[in-house]
């Protein structure tokens, strides 16, 4: 199920603006990779190229290759819809469908895949909500609107929605930035648990979080505003936080970034 990712020569544009340039890296199956770096360096952009969500924006385009278990996501004839079914995504702000109940939110992806059987849906709802550590809190009100939950619960609902379709990879863009410390811990626990089944990539501004949850850390930066972002280095998380190779990385993680 879990999948390795190999990115090479990845360059992403917003219209004429080159947001990130010539990125190369590899991600091991069933690992957690953290993207860190200053604001605007292109972490979200790179993340969104991994499930072809980048090109959803008008005039946005991508060059280079992203291999998922050896298969190029940007190869000819690859349908982005299928890519997104295989690579799930959790956004910075919790975004459950406001018009749907908790239950319907969780099965939204399954219904898109044509699953109609009630017993199967019921089963997957419980499974996914348990997987997202939310089942106990919502099992008595599955018919209530998803938007009526707390922010942290909504974010776990979004995680449940993403894992309900059993993707191979789970992308998370600052999933805790809108949450309180308790909810953040709940999500971090969840990430450690999900690691056993999914390849996870998480963008975070929180160094402690990156250190706590990730196996590998990638540090991105940009040299000057207007320049494209680039990957400075990527290594085992302990190494990045204790003894990084690049001076820029050390400056950033020790807070001396200028």
């Amino acid at each position: 199920m879990a999948t390795r990712i190999d990115v090479s020569g990845l360059t992403a544009y917003y219209g004429k603006f080159k947001a990130v340039s010539d990125i190369h890296f590899s991600i091991e199956p069933k690992s957690v990779t953290a993207f860190i770096g200053p604001s605007g360096c292109g972490k979200s952009t790179v993340l969104r190229t991994l499930n072809r969500m980048h090109e959803v924006l008008p005039a946005a385009r991508v060059e280079g290759r992203v291999l998922l278990d050896g298969e190029d996501l940007y190869g000819p004839g690859v349908d982005p819809v299928n890519v997104r079914r295989a690579v799930g995504m959790v956004f910075q702000r919790p975004n459950p469908f406001p018009t749907m109940s908790i239950y319907d939110n969780v099965v939204a992806g399954l219904r898109l895949n044509g699953v109609r059987k009630k017993s199967l849906l019921d089963e997957r709802v419980e499974e996914s909500l348990r997987g997202a550590n939310l089942w106990e809190e919502v099992k008595d009100r599955l018919g209530r609107p998803g938007a009526g939950l707390s922010g942290g619960q909504q974010q776990r609902l979004c995680i449940a929605r993403a894992i309900a379709v059993e993707p191979q990879v789970l992308l998370m863009d600052e999933p805790c930035s809108a949450l309180d410390p308790i909810s953040t811990l709940a999500i971090e626990d969840l990430i450690s648990k999900l690691k056993s089944s999914y390849t996870i990539v998480i963008v975070t501004h929180n160094m402690q979080q990156a250190a706590r949850v990730s196996d590998t850390t990638a540090f991105f930066t940009l040299d000057r505003t207007g320049d494209p972002g680039r990957l400075v280095e990527m290594d085992r998380t302990e190494k990045i936080f204790s003894n990084p190779t690049e001076k820029r990385t050390e400056e950033y993680i020790t807070g001396r970034f200028g």
């Binding site: 499930n51 997104r84 995504m89 956004f91 459950p96 929605r161 993403a162």
Partner: peptide
């Protein structure tokens, strides 16, 4: 985007 990211 939530819908698209689910593969809609």
């Amino acid at each position: 985007e939530a819908a698209l990211a689910l593969g809609a």
